[in-house]
Nucleic acid binder design. Structure first.
Length: 598
RNA sequence: GGUUCCGUAGCUCAGUUGGAUAGAGCAACAGCCUUCUAAGCUGUGGGUCCUUGGUUCGAAUCCAAGCGGAAUCACCA
């Protein structure tokens, strides 16, 4: 039982003894004592003054007196207005540190065997465009949340659903067939996804010309012209042939998608994300139809006169949703019904998380309602991890205006900046070329990932390409630096010394910085479970930053290895060691690697 | 127009189911390397927590209305 629970139990029993009122321990709210007051944990007593029939001050006094006598860990208290500040014994804090040190690190919860997994879908790219900044946020979030859930003892299956079919792919294919002259990524020395993306852009510009001509010659408006343009007709013809499994078309489609995957794989690898399973829409886009037809047969869904199938969602105050067109073909929603079922059948998932932008909030709302209507119990296990858009100073990224921030370019830039900054500081002269390049990657990507993940997922965030992502202050490199700094101390101390460090005898008089550091370390497990509950890597990011800051203040004010008192020195060494381990562990949950030297 | 989300320092963001005098970083200014890594540390200035009401011992946080912004309301995905 941890100390918070012990206190809560005591509070409950004191209230019961004094007033006869029974309250749940979950109603006892404890908070960290603010640093301007004396104490470690604070109980706000206002909620209990009625039951206790005392003034807030007297209530707090009563609680304080009892807690000190009943709990060894609580050695002192003070009361300010209705706030009861409790102080824990140094033994309590030192025991915590010793236990953790013996374990060698802060450990995350172990997975329980035989439990149902959580399926996390993220990334889900289109194969006609290279990955951009928005995808980066998606990928980092998905990956990090998977790590965080694992750290909470859950089994996680990371899945990707690639949108590899449809009219947009046909556009790239058509442009390549018409203008490519047999070019390949190899022949042009281009990354596969970029290569294919270029043909998508080319298609759009060719189409634009036709649309303009049609508008001026026949006076059609833009929308009509786009539909009537011969290029669009050709693209639709390609899609029809693809769906009919036309050999030639399928071969080209395979070839071009293959190029894209090669490119994506490189980007994923650099970004450090991976998947346990990849689904392809070309293999799943027909799913869902049967479920819808069953729903129609059993009268849950209805058909209109033209044969189209709909879900009546008026009970949820939503518009009716089309699920099958009059010609029997599926829409996006239908596919998602199918893939949800597939995923559920395949993994027997306890929870299915979809990391998808908030522009699809409504879609997921409807998806859950339709599944529920169809009697699928797993509808309730679907969680849309909805995240905000990454915006530029001038607003949304628009591919037409060329404001899209490319994922590879951005990573290149970050790594390049890391290189420059590191070279200017000149601390890595003795690094080999390989070590250098590893370090630059670590720092550049650390800066980028931390920048993206420290913001609450649900909020829109701003990225200004004009000012590069910072390396000082609340940033990835600052945290990485703190880790490297501690590693340097470890090296100086030497292995023998590190082994013996936990030999420190319980001493008294923890100084303020030591105490705050140890208290922050103590918080780690809570933060990890909170991050999982809130589905927010930002909680981890902000915590690790806080920890690093706390350490640097301590480091600045007190000497660790040069402290003449051996016990004191060993204690500080342990404290530093645990800090480094915790930083590393926390950063791992963000998908960020920390260096030993930088 | 309906629905949902958002509005905190010049800028980017924290702020734990309502709790004490609202916090960081960047930017600006002033300091700190003969000592374990200065990508660091210390200090100064900077606030109508969008506005107005309400709920209560107490509101940045909850409720209502308004203002401003975003997304969405497709037989696109």
């Amino acid at each position: 039982m941890n100390i918070e629970q012990k206190i809560a139990n005591e509070v409950v029993s004191i209230i019961l003894e004094k007033s006869g009122m029974q309250i749940g321990t979950d109603k006892v709210h404890l908070q960290k004592t603010r640093k301007e007051f004396q104490g470690d944990l604070t109980l706000v007593v206002f909620p209990y003054v009625k039951a206790m029939r005392m003034s807030p001050e007297l209530t707090a006094e009563t609680f304080g007196k009892h807690l000190v006598t009943r709990l060894d860990e609580v050695i002192a208290y003070n009361v300010i207005k209705g706030f009861l500040n409790l102080t824990f014994s140094e033994k309590f804090w030192l025991d915590f540190l010793l236990n953790k040190t013996l374990e060698q690190s802060i450990e995350d919860k172990k997975q329980q065997p035989d439990q149902k997994p959580v399926v996390v879908e993220f990334s889900s790219p289109n194969t006609n465009k290279p990955l951009h900044l928005g995808h980066i946020r998606n990928n980092l979030l998905g990956y990090s949340i998977s790590k965080i859930l694992e750290a909470n003892g859950q089994k996680v299956v990371k899945v990707n659903l690639v949108n590899d079919r449809g009219i947009h792919i046909c556009k790239s294919m058509l442009a390549w067939m018409l203008k490519g002259e047999g070019a390949t990524p190899e022949s042009l020395g281009k990354k596969g996804d970029k290569f294919v993306g270029d043909y998508y852009v080319l298609f759009e510009s060719l189409l634009r010309k036709q649309v303009n001509e049609l508008s001026s010659e026949q006076g059609l408006d833009e929308e009509e012209a786009r539909i009537k343009a011969p290029l669009m007709e050709q693209a639709r013809e390609l899609l029809r042939r693809w769906e009919a499994r036309d050999h030639e078309v399928v071969e080209i489609w395979k070839k071009m998608n293959g190029w894209v995957y090669e490119g994506f794989d490189k980007t994923y690898q650099r970004l450090g994300v991976s998947f346990d399973k990849t689904y392809y829409e070309s293999e799943t886009y027909l799913l869902g139809r049967d479920i819808v037809l069953q729903g129609l047969n059993s009268g849950i869904l209805y058909a209109k006169a033209d044969g189209s199938v709909w879900a009546d969602l008026s009970e949820y105050k939503l518009d009716d949703k089309l699920l099958l067109r009059a010609d029997g073909t599926s829409v996006y929603m239908t596919q998602d019904i199918g893939t949800a079922q597939l995923r559920y059948d395949e993994f027997d998932a306890s929870e299915m998380i979809y990391v998808v932008g908030n522009e699809q909030n409504h879609h997921f709302d409807v998806l859950k309602k339709v599944l529920k209507k169809l009697g699928k119990n797993y509808a309730d296990t679907i969680y849309h991890l909805s995240y905000g858009m990454v915006e530029l100073p001038e607003g949304k990224m628009k591919s037409r205006e060329g404001t899209v921030v490319d994922a590879d370019d951005l990573m290149d830039e970050m790594i390049d900046t890391a290189k420059k900054t590191t070279e200017e500081l000149g601390k890595t002269q003795d690094f080999t070329e390989e070590e250098k390049s590893l370090l630059y990657n670590m720092i550049g990507l650390g800066a980028l990932k931390y920048f993206m993940l420290k913001v609450d997922p649900k909020r829109n965030m701003l990225f200004n390409p004009a000012e590069s992502i910072d390396f000082n202050g609340n940033t990835g490199p600052f945290i990485q630096y703190t880790h490297a700094r501690i590693c340097s101390i470890r090296r100086t101390a030497g292995e023998d010394r590190m082994h013996k460090a936990s030999d420190f005898i319980l001493m008294s008089n923890l100084n303020e910085k030591e105490k705050r550091l140890i208290k922050t370390l103590y918080d780690y497990p809570n933060v990890v479970s909170e991050a999982a509950r809130e589905m927010s890597p930002a909680q981890i990011a902000n915590y690790v930053y806080e920890l690093a800051r706390e350490f640097n203040q301590f480091y600045h004010e007190y000497s660790i290895l040069n402290e003449p008192d051996v016990t004191q020195s060993n204690f500080r060494l342990c404290l530093s060691d645990l800090t480094a381990n915790t930083i590393k562990q926390g950063m791992t949950l963000l998908g960020i690697v920390v260096p030993e030297r930088m």
